[in-house]
Design a protein around this nucleic acid. Structure first.
Lengths: 346, 346
DNA sequence: CTGTTAGCGCTTTCAC
DNA sequence: GTGAAAGCGCTAACAG
């Protein structure tokens, strides 16, 4: 990567390094227009492109922002990434991407890599794990993040605060009101569903999933309904599918009342629906089905999926802005229940 | 971003900068284990994280790879990004992300930014535009890319080669056989569809779209069928929807034979299907419908969409590997026609 | 307004 | 094996 240097440009233009720097890369002091013109011409003719590494080193500011997601191919995360990218662009930052499959250990590695690159902010999206076996890795992640903050970094967290983080004033958290929204969903669902409720949740300890489950149960309880049966499965499409297979079998075996299934997120719900189809069952005829997230690419799915709308891209924007500047007030996220055909009465 | 420096570590360990460097960051010469241990301890106690910027400057190699996509929220691109990310990780590189909405001007800007960051390779995904009005911007993009190559960069191109690129030996292109695959699709479709064919393509000049259209028409012709009517719309879900509305209206107006619609990509096809639904028309009853790409998140859509499967993630992996190392042979992409329910006979 | 001169943090010959 | 010193390309005081 050997492009021409500022020194070469300066020499060609017959000026000093400092002057060349001043005209090419912004500075308070503006050199005379005649000189400036010569420098620009020289730069142009040499195809000069400033070395951002060197600039970063010299002024210790990189304009980099690190983004950590579980899986960039997951529409949930790619929508968020879009928002992050938009905000970064608006603020003249570049984004460094890392995917981790949600494992705290990989997240920690990503933080180290970003810290090495001297990213000015790190945005970390995706649910934290509260499982006992992840406690160690979580602590390491928090420690790494704290160290990063102590060295001047800022971090934006989407969802739940990082477990065990200390330097809290350098964290900007945009919390998603999972629990409250899930409660509202349960309330609305309970209003016109007679039968029993079943929850298809993610693995225990996945914070987002746990919050949604908890909120949904609470809503049910508030509506005077019995607690829902809880099924656990991977928090993705196939997890939903597997759970759906189980439910379908049960429905086929015995004469059971029509259940209302709440899946922890939209893609799980889609999995449940797919399993139902394979077993000749129909939604909403044989079961009501609701998801969470309102993923854009799933909106054309039929029957239209009842879900909770989340402004994913906006979330990404907000957390990024908050992670860049420290005078961004706390953001409140508005989600809303969207009842559609998958939970209609029959 | 002021972390502790190598110098501090060296001082604490009571060794020279050089030695500290050798033990902390790999080097051919291995200092004695006793010394090494002291250095490591010092680094650990100071929470030392090497400054990648400084390293990059010193050894002029950044380990950065730039990725340019139209829209990271589009499942087509996010699948590719996943592959790019995987390859980058495997090769110990970090990826810098830029989104451009497909405008050559923004792509050029991204290239400049990556060049400034001294990214070692740039992967550029997404269709090139062959429209006359983009010619200028395309030329600038090609010029920028060429300059980047001349300065030692390598570029990986997914889809069509960059128009007007000169330094071709530093480009690694993974071409998608759009035309041939579209032709195969047409051939298979023609085998059991009686009625007329309609193509819902992207705007004229969008290379990917144009290739698919051309291949499809050729396949039709090879099958002894008349040329399909061609509708143009934005190359996304809403473009498909709008085109679908038009087709639905026409179908409703006059008594027409059941058409077979080929949409330029899956999301357009989904748009067409949505429009049909809104007009009370059913697929495949009132029209056969096929897409292209076989987007993973759309596989649970019903009726199952006939399409052409493309190994998107693998494609991302391949271009990236090719853009990193120059001894990666040309890759051949295998796509395959997947006929499903959306084009079944009735 | 322009030029000189220290660094920024690290790698890497080259001596010892 | 270890250390001293010269950069890598650029910015930012500080002089002139």
């Amino acid at each position: 990567m050997a492009a021409s240097t500022l020194a070469e440009v300066a020499k060609l233009a017959g000026v000093s390094l400092a002057t060349a720097s001043r005209v090419l890369n912004g500075s308070a002091r503006k050199p005379g227009e005649g000189i400036a013109e010569r420098v620009r011409a020289a730069a142009e003719s040499l195809g000069y492109v400033a070395n951002a590494q060197a600039q970063a080193l010299a002024k210790s500011s990189t304009g980099l922002i690190g983004l950590i997601v579980h899986d960039i191919a997951d529409p949930y995360f790619s929508a968020i990434a879009q928002g992050v990218q938009a905000a970064a662009r608006q603020e003249h930052r570049m984004v460094l991407l890392a995917t981790t499959d949600g494992t705290p250990a990989a997240e920690k590695e990503a933080v180290v890599a970003f810290a090495a690159r001297r990213a000015e902010s790190i945005v970390i999206a995706g649910s934290r794990s509260t499982r006992a076996e992840d406690a160690g890795a979580n602590a390491e992640l928090a420690a790494e993040l704290d160290r990063y903050c102590r060295n001047g970094g800022r971090v934006g967290v989407l969802g739940q605060p990082v477990i065990g983080a200390a330097e809290t004033d350098r964290y900007y958290t945009v919390a998603v009101p999972n629990e409250e929204l899930a409660r509202e969903l349960a309330l609305e669902l309970a209003a016109d569903h007679e039968g029993p409720f079943v929850i298809v949740g993610g693995p225990e300890g996945l914070a987002t999933s746990d919050e949604r489950i908890k909120g949904f149960q609470r809503g049910l309880s508030d509506a005077g309904r019995p607690t829902a049966e809880l099924l656990r499965a991977p928090f993705n499409r196939n997890g939903g599918f597997d759970a759906g297979v189980g439910i379908s079998r049960k429905l086929a075996t015995a004469e059971q009342p029509r259940p209302c299934i709440f899946a922890g997120n939209d893609v799980m719900a889609i999995g449940v629906a797919a399993a139902f189809r394979e077993h000749g069952l129909k939604i909403p005829r044989d079961a009501a089905l609701a998801g969470f997230d309102d993923i854009e690419w799933l909106r054309d799915f039929r029957p239209a999926l009842s879900t909770v709308s989340l402004p994913l891209e906006e979330l990404g924007r907000l957390v990024t802005l908050g992670a860049i500047s420290d005078d961004v007030g706390p953001a409140t996220v508005e989600g809303s229940v969207a009842l559609r055909r998958s939970t209609s009465s029959s």
